[in-house]
Write a protein that binds this DNA or RNA. Sequence first.
DNA 1: CAGTATCCGCACGGATACTG
DNA 2: CAGTATCCGTGCGGATACTG
Lengths: 106, 106
Amino acid sequence: MKKELPACPVEVTLQLIGDKWKVLILRDLMDGTKRFGVLKKGINGVSQKVLTANLRMMETSGLVSRKVYAEVPPRVEYTLTKTGYSLKPVLDVMTVWGEEYKEKME
Amino acid sequence: MKKELPACPVEVTLQLIGDKWKVLILRDLMDGTKRFGVLKKGINGVSQKVLTANLRMMETSGLVSRKVYAEVPPRVEYTLTKTGYSLKPVLDVMTVWGEEYKEKME
DNA sequence: CAGTATCCGCACGGATACTG
DNA sequence: CAGTATCCGTGCGGATACTG
């Protein structure tokens, strides 16, 4: 049931991060490890279900690692893997472009 | 009915190009002006409807310009605007990252 | 050729309730 | 707290047919 990687490299990238929520998750995790609840609070408007689903995908893609602590109440922390962190330049370029675009449009 | 720009710049960019087809259209148009039919043939698997819709969106976003020739049979050409072309670095970074990711995964 | 118009199915996201 | 489970509505993309 694994999704095939597209032939075109730019599509590969898009498939992994081209998603309303995934970029926001990545951006939040660039600062460092965060708990599920903190992520949820930081990202405005995600439901649990969708956030969980996105994190799972990113885990299978190797972008994010998930650490569960055997505590009560449970604690789960998410961290970027090296691969995940290597997306920083991509996000940066997108951010810069977005800023310039917004300025131009005002 | 115009879509609001999100607060976060990276979301702005994503809203404009974070779409399976839009990146492919952009990539194809980076080479220069193309006719509708050529675009359709170049992009594997798009339906007319969806291609048209995407081009319209990109036109309203100011990424693409559309030129109609008063001929029979009709000819319509699409060209990147300056703003559209300014996305090149973004696509390039995404492409490079995608290539590296694919290598790593093999 | 380059569209518009219409119908249709289903995948996806939201809301809610329940659990280890 | 950090999830799963379930139901449900709609929106988007595909297919097809028609047109300037």
